[in-house]
């Protein structure tokens, strides 16, 4: 019988989560995109947020990233209540985001993108492009040693290189909480495995990661816990080791808790489930 718990069962009760979202609500007009969801994240942990299209995963993390503030609910970082109005606030609390569409300005170079909105400046207030290029070079050595196109516009980079730029932006500023929205959606197989290695590496450094993904294989490979959303509500949070892929699919599609679902229902699910798993 798998346990459904807000926190990982292996953790002692007194450990503070790195990040906790409590009873978050967001409505667009009359539609409740996120309706009273609570999730948490511990250091060095990957929590996957899964659910169908329109389940509210992105909207939920947007409240943490500052892209779209919550209507109500509370956010705690290291046990302290914080208020996040905009991306700037989120960054001040060590929250960095890697967006699905990468959010890079295509027409400027890698260093300019890494430091976008947080440029290094000289004493006279001019941009210190050399310092930024040098810092970017250092981060890139860690993330993607083959990367050397520091001076070209990111438009001319490959998908994987662009992804490195987006991740470098988060890593350079010592993110403690990283939100990755479909990080491998636009990538080829080689680049996808690169990103997976990177997630493992960041995890080892004690960074907490919220991973939004459609790819159930990615989720089972990378995540420690899985939070499933359906129609704006949290179906449940499970430890990866306690559940099967089928049980998670049942949560995603039917909103059934693991254990509630019968063998026949799982068999029924398999036609649409294969689509989701692709």
């Amino acid at each position: 019988m798998p346990t459904i718990s807000p926190a990982s069962s292996e953790r002692s009760a007194d450990m503070t989560p790195l990040c906790e979202l409590r009873d978050i609500r967001v409505a667009f007009g009359g539609l409740h995109a996120v309706d009273g969801v609570s999730i948490d994240l511990f250091p060095g942990e990957v929590v996957a947020l899964v659910g169908g299209n329109g389940a509210g995963k992105s909207t939920l993390v947007h409240t943490l990233s500052g892209a779209h503030p919550a209507d109500s609910g509370e956010i705690f970082i290291n046990g302290e209540r914080v208020v996040i109005h905009n991306p700037r606030d989120a960054r001040l609390h060590g929250v960095e985001v890697i967006y699905q569409k990468l959010a890079l300005a295509d027409n400027i170079d890698a260093a300019a993108n890494v430091f976008l909105g947080r440029e290094l400046r000289t004493r006279t207030g001019s941009l210190d492009d050399e310092a930024m290029a040098s810092a970017t070079q250092k981060v890139m050595q860690r993330l993607n040693p083959r990367f050397r196109n520091l001076k070209t516009a990111v438009r001319s980079l490959s998908g994987g290189q662009r992804q490195s730029v987006a991740i470098a932006r988060a890593v350079h500023f010592n993110a403690r909480i990283l939100i990755m929205d479909e990080p491998t959606a636009a990538l080829g197989p080689a680049e996808t495995s690169q990103v997976r290695d990177l997630i493992t590496q960041l995890k080892a450094e004690g960074i907490g990661i919220f991973l939004i993904s459609h790819d159930i294989h990615d989720v089972f490979d990378l995540a420690d816990r899985i939070s499933v959303m359906l129609q704006g509500r949290l179906v449940g949070t499970v430890n990866k080791v306690d559940v099967s892929k089928d049980e998670v699919l049942a949560m995603i599609i039917a909103g059934k808790q693991p254990g509630e679902v019968s063998k026949e229902e799982i068999a029924d699910l398999h036609a649409p489930a294969q689509h989701t798993a692709e």
């Binding site: 892209a67 905009n86 991306p87 700037r88 960054r91 985001v97 967006y99 569409k101 990468l102 959010a103 890079l104 300005a105 295509d106 027409n107 400027i108 300019a112 993108n113 976008l116 909105g117 947080r118």
Partner: peptide, 15 residues
């Protein structure tokens, strides 16, 4: 230039 290249990215960058 960042705004002209990608207004959304500039906004998300906190500009």
């Amino acid at each position: 230039f960042a705004y002209g290249g990608n207004p959304e990215a500039a906004e998300l960058g906190g500009i």
